[in-house]
Design a binder for these strands. Sequence first.
DNA 1: TTGAACTGTAATATTTTTTGATACAGAATG
DNA 2: CATTCTGTATCAAAAAATATTACAGTTCAA
Lengths: 135, 135
Amino acid sequence: MNNGRFAIALHILVLLTKNQGELLSSEYIAGSININAAMVRKALQGLKQKGFVQSKEGKHGGVSLAKNPQDIILSQIYSSIRETAILGSKQQPNPNCLVGKQINTHLDTLYRDAEKALVEALGKQTLLEFAQKFK
Amino acid sequence: MNNGRFAIALHILVLLTKNQGELLSSEYIAGSININAAMVRKALQGLKQKGFVQSKEGKHGGVSLAKNPQDIILSQIYSSIRETAILGSKQQPNPNCLVGKQINTHLDTLYRDAEKALVEALGKQTLLEFAQKFK
DNA sequence: TTGAACTGTAATATTTTTTGATACAGAATG
DNA sequence: CATTCTGTATCAAAAAATATTACAGTTCAA
């Protein structure tokens, strides 16, 4: 997770929450985050797939929220961008060693439990609550 | 955290726990993890600094635990390798935008809380308990 | 007292991941 | 039918992670 995708996704969703009813262009969003518009559109792909946002093509098109922000919890946003284990990559250890042979199994359960705790913490806040901090 | 440092550190410490009293060489450890010995020695630097391991130079030298494995909790190991926010990097957003101006502050507190939950989960297990799973 | 087996550390190369940039087809609008 | 968008692909650049090599210094033991 050494990438900014969670921050970007959340930034986008906060902008949309703060501008409900309007269509925001990827160019505008990119200007707020200070990244490239193509990156924004890429991030939007995922958010769209997960049903958080909807978009309209063509002139005067743009993006808007597809759900009420009180029905989106931050852990869902995290899950939508999650790709790899949060505690990092594992190795391909020596199968002829007692520890090497088993470590990845034990790391898996450890990582699962730890990440579950993180997700639960994120689950305590809705997008609306998070967005309301901005004033 | 898209790196394998936590897995490597834990692997090393489990090996040392399973071989208390002995001195393990970085070459031997590297063979179990299946990485380069210089990488192991680099990982050991940190573990040594944090007081988890001690080493002996020269012929017949090697590394051993510096504490009882029941006195090391997994969250301490995590903290010792931790460098960046676990939920990923942030952006440098537009300060002229209401959301852009404040997002990093709010992300900071969110990240802190989420990571705290993860650390607490890791804190529930000692190195000894983890190592005892290997048999 | 010398060679072998280690650690400690630095320097450098390679690979992988992340980010950025550009381009363009296709949709909607007026 | 020109304009302004999204959607998507491709390529370039930068940054991060990992691997490799080298060697000085320490310790041991013959």
